[in-house]
Design a protein around this nucleic acid. Structure first.
Length: 614
RNA sequence: GGGGCCGUAGCUCAAUUGGUUAGAGUACCGGACUGUCGAUCCGGUGGUUGCGGGUUCGAGCCCCGUCGGCCUCGCCA
């Protein structure tokens, strides 16, 4: 532990002491000196954070990744040195020599870990002047953060900010803990190719043209899925890898085109084994990173239950606000829209927003309605505001049979001031719309403390989702997922009811990982391919190697992949994945610092046999 | 591919809703100051209002197009 940087719960970034990191250029770091060091002759290197100039003396905060130390230059430092000190500006890189001194009585700075001391400067060397930076790397809380485009263009300055350094440190910590943990459990770290064949996981591939094989392309891996299964067949019964994955799909706040997974696979296991291993990891990281005790095993919920109670397969379980199904009551409620919906076999479901009746105006509700129409294709949004006398106000209330309305409202068990929101639509639309509303209102009404963490498993996913456009079945996870043994017969009779041995790790309503037990029998694998409309020649062509391998002694196996970027985001309490990645890409998958992707020479294209069509 | 928000000084934002000289804070430059720590005080430089069209007597503001950033649906574990 000693000499190791480590984020501790409740401890500021600067409060750990990394031990001496002396070099020929420096004797200490800027976060290291304490009152015990008074009298020492030291040399610090770092960036100028602020320069407070009093004419007679200069107070300079010197910053490196370990912290800040105040260095003072006075006439005793010598006229030349003092003049040089006066000329220092933000982000200049300097070396400062001096004597550690206790600060003057009452002049301690409680905000700094080094705040009891200061360095009385005797020497100063400017190692490198900085241009005036476009935004401040220092000045925590001083100024509004610069726009993200500017931060991304000057990423080196953004990464210099203590907040960013803290996140990067946390990320390194999480990855290291993962590596230690799996190493202790005898996992073997094996690297798999980046230049590979397209894996059939549904997303668009990033392609790399082959010069040698003109007209042929490698695909960057969407995940190392097939390789790790091959490793199981090869007898490496516990594989782990920190793997970069690539998916050429449109981006979101929590999605990048290239991202990092902690990928693992185990042989001779059932789902409980894999989940148990991850339970241990969650508990360890929560403890080491946040000082949080997590009760094990983590709670589990089936996919069906999650959809019914929360409308989503990754519900945020930090708060309640569960969905309420009133379809039965709607059948004879008097309100035509509801009745027709119910009669058509669709659903009338809703949720209760505590205090929403007072919080949201009629106009706010109209905006919510527009929103769920636009984003989720909902036909509308019905609302009831619970009045102080307990009655339910709504423009549509007059259409209801009073008794039925009372019963309907009672289903939500509301208090005065609450707001009931109902969606009458298909199962899918009601899920999406109410999930969206729940997520948004939960945050807006502050129904949970954003600092709390909730970990859970969602299990028993459907094997297949019906693709209405193509009128065929599509793999919900990927085509190598094993069905539950008790559901295997359903493959032939009713694939839609067949449940997979699949499990997703959910943290605070985010999917933080997902895995399955795989098919290890080539016949069963072929049966699943058939269902997915992948005929034998196609299957042979695309993953004949796997089908072959399955015939040479494939052990039962399964695994999981964890989204490391998302883990960092969630453990750091951030809401943006770009802040968890040193060099992220914009929403259009561009790197603003390097300007990737860029044009290439005509010569390069010619070598590859590629012509650009405009 | 669809919907939305945004783009004004290096940076963060304002501009009485179409009105004549586009402001503030900060940064930067100069000056003052021996205990600050978001130092303070005085003075100063700094603008093709993303770009291109259009409407108008007049456009930062309205319209069309375009580029870029963000959020989101579709898509994607």
């Amino acid at each position: 532990m000693e000499g190791r940087a480590r984020v501790r719960p409740g401890a500021g970034f600067y409060s750990f002491c990394p031990g001496r990191i002396a070099t020929l250029l420096r004797t200490h770091t800027c976060g290291e000196l304490r009152s015990e060091d008074v009298g020492r002759e030291v040399t610090l290197c770092g960036w100028v954070d602020t320069n407070r100039d009093f004419g007679g003396s200069q107070f300079i905060d010197l910053r490196d990744r370990y912290g800040k130390t105040q260095v003072v230059f006075t006439p005793q430092s010598g006229a030349e040195t003092q003049a040089l000190a006066r000329s220092l500006r933000s982000e200049d890189v300097v070396s400062m020599t001096g004597t550690v001194a206790r600060r003057l009585e009452g002049k301690d700075n409680a905000k700094l870990a080094t705040g009891q001391i200061e360095v009385r400067g005797t020497g100063l060397k400017v190692l490198n002047k900085s241009l005036t930076p476009p935004f401040q790397s220092s000045a925590v809380g001083t100024q509004e953060l610069a726009g993200e485009d500017i931060r991304l263009t000057h990423r080196y300055l953004d990464l210099r900010r203590p907040e960013m350094q803290q996140t990067m440190l946390l990320r390194g910590q999480i990855v290291k803990t993962m590596r230690d943990y799996f190493d202790e459990l005898d996992f073997i770290d094996v690297e798999t190719p980046v230049l590979g064949r397209s894996t059939p996981e549904g997303a668009r591939d990033y392609l790399v043209p082959s010069r040698v094989h003109r007209g042929a392309f490698y695909a960057l891996p969407q995940s190392p899925q097939l390789y790790k299964q091959i490793l199981m067949i090869a007898g490496y019964d516990r594989y782990v890898q920190v793997a970069r994955c690539f998916r050429d799909e449109d981006l979101r706040a929590d999605r990048q085109p290239e991202f990092t997974q902690l990928d693992l696979e185990m042989s001779f296991v059932e789902a409980d084994d894999v989940m148990g291993v991850i339970d241990g990891l969650v508990s360890r990281i929560a403890r080491e990173v946040l000082g949080l005790k997590v009760n094990l095993p983590l709670p589990r919920m089936t996919y069906d239950e999650a959809m019914r109670r929360f409308g989503h397969d990754a519900p945020d379980l930090r708060f309640g606000m569960e969905l309420v199904d009133v379809t039965d009551l709607a059948k004879e409620c008097g309100f035509r829209v509801f009745q027709e919906t119910a009669a058509a076999g669709k659903f009338v479901r809703g949720l209760k927003a505590p205090g929403g009746g007072t919080r949201y105006s009629r106009k706010d509700i109209d905006l919510l309605t527009d929103w769920i129409r636009q984003d989720f294709g909902a036909s509308g949004l019905a609302f009831f505001r619970i009045e102080p006398d307990g009655s339910a106000f709504s423009p549509i209330a007059k259409n209801f049979q009073p008794a039925v309305l009372a019963e309907l409202v009672a289903h939500f068990d509301p208090q005065p001031g609450d707001l009931l929101l109902l969606v009458a639509d298909t199962w899918e639309v009601s899920c999406k719309a109410l999930y969206g509303l729940r997520k948004r209102l939960g945050a807006e009404l502050k129904l949970y403390d954003p600092k709390t963490m909730h970990f859970s498993w969602i299990v028993e996913f459907p094997m297949f989702a019906h693709d209405a456009e193509e009128n065929c079945w599509a793999a919900m996870h990927h085509p190598f997922t094993a069905p539950r043994p008790q559901d295997q017969e359903l493959l032939a009779t009713d694939p839609g009811k067949c449940r997979a041995i699949a499990y997703d790790l959910v943290i605070n309503g985010s999917e933080a990982g997902g895995g399955t037990i795989r098919i290890h029998d080539s016949k069963l694998q072929q049966q699943v391919f058939d269902l997915l409309g992948i005929d034998e020649p196609t299957a042979r062509e695309r993953f004949g190697f796997l089908l072959d391998a399955l015939k040479y002694g494939a052990p039962p196996h399964g695994g999981i992949a964890l989204g490391i970027d998302r883990w960092v985001m969630l453990f750091a309490g951030l809401d943006n994945i770009r802040d968890c990645i040193a060099f992220p890409k914009t929403q259009k998958a561009a790197d603003m610092m390097t300007d990737a992707p860029g044009q290439v020479d005509a010569k390069q294209l010619k070598e590859l046999g590629i012509q650009i069509i405009r």
